[in-house]
Amino acid sequence: MLSLQEMSDRLELQALVVDYATAIDEQDFDALDEIFTEDASIDYTAMGGIAGNLTEIKQFLTQAMPFFTAFQHLNGNHKLEVTGDTATGKVMCLNPMVVPVEEGEQVMFLGLWYIDKYRRTKDGWRISERREEKSFAHNTPAFMLPK
């Protein structure tokens, strides 16, 4: 049986994951300062992005996300392991993205896992490490495929 503290920790971590998805979908990249630790390591390379620190990732997102005309991040299957003031997580994400193409628009579907490390700070739980693990990509426009 989970203790009240364990239940609270899990709910806070799940809320953190939702806050991340909301910040990305609303393109409110400054909100990521309240989601990640200052020394966070973030790796989006599995899905074609970059790896870097929080400042580098915010710059990347500011440049990359406006290319897409619509997108959503749906998270689920949160597998969380809490050990005191640290935790690990594996979170499923379904990410449809609308891509402008010559013919108009095309919706591609990305399936991935976030492999996370979390740390409790004086301001609450934060993501200290996030790495994407690819599950699938469907209907990706040809110009976006690796050469």
Score class of each variant (00 low, 15 high):
Val98Leu: 10
Glu102Tyr: 02
Asn95Ser: 12
Gln27Ser: 13
Asp116Leu: 06
Met7Asp: 03
Thr83Cys: 03
Arg120Ser: 01
Lys79Ser: 14
Phe60Thr: 09
Ile115Leu: 10
Glu102Asn: 13
Pro141Thr: 04
Ala142Lys: 11
Gly76Ser: 15
Gly124Asp: 02
Gly52Asn: 10
Arg126Met: 04
Val101Ala: 06
Gly52Phe: 12
Pro141Met: 02
Asp116Arg: 00
Ser3Arg: 13
Leu112Ile: 04
Ala142Val: 08
Leu94Asn: 02
Phe136Ile: 00
Lys134Asp: 01
Glu102Cys: 03
Glu6Tyr: 10
Glu133Asp: 11
Ala137Asn: 03
Ala51Tyr: 11
Asp123His: 05
Glu81Trp: 06
His138Arg: 11
Glu34Tyr: 00
Gly89Asp: 09
Thr37Val: 06
Asp28Gly: 01
Met7Arg: 15
Arg119Leu: 12
Asp25Glu: 08
Thr88Tyr: 00
Lys79Arg: 15
Lys134Leu: 13
Ala23Phe: 07
Phe143Asp: 12
Asp9Cys: 03
Asp9His: 08
Gly124Leu: 03
Asp33Ser: 07
Met144Phe: 07
Ser41Cys: 02
Ile50Glu: 09
Gln5Met: 09
Phe67Gln: 13
Gly104Val: 11
Thr22Ile: 05
Tyr44Ser: 05
Ala15Glu: 15
Phe68Thr: 04
Arg130Lys: 15
Arg130Ser: 11
Thr69His: 08
Ala15Thr: 15
Leu32Asp: 07
Leu61Thr: 06
Glu133Gln: 11
Glu102Gly: 14
Gly104His: 09
Met1Val: 13
Phe136Tyr: 15
Ala15Val: 04
Thr86Ile: 14
Glu34Gly: 04
Gly84Val: 07
Tyr44Met: 13
Glu56Val: 10
Gln59Met: 13
Thr83Met: 08
Phe109Leu: 13
Asn75Trp: 00
Asp85Phe: 00
Met144Ile: 01
Asp85Ile: 12
Ile50Gly: 07
Phe68Glu: 04
Trp125Tyr: 05
Arg131Thr: 15
Gly76Met: 09
Arg130Glu: 12
Gln72Tyr: 02
Met97Ser: 07
Ser41Phe: 14
Ala40Gln: 08
Ala51Trp: 09
Gly89Thr: 11
Thr37Met: 02
Gln72Met: 05
Val91Leu: 07
Leu32Lys: 09
Phe36His: 03
Glu132Ile: 01
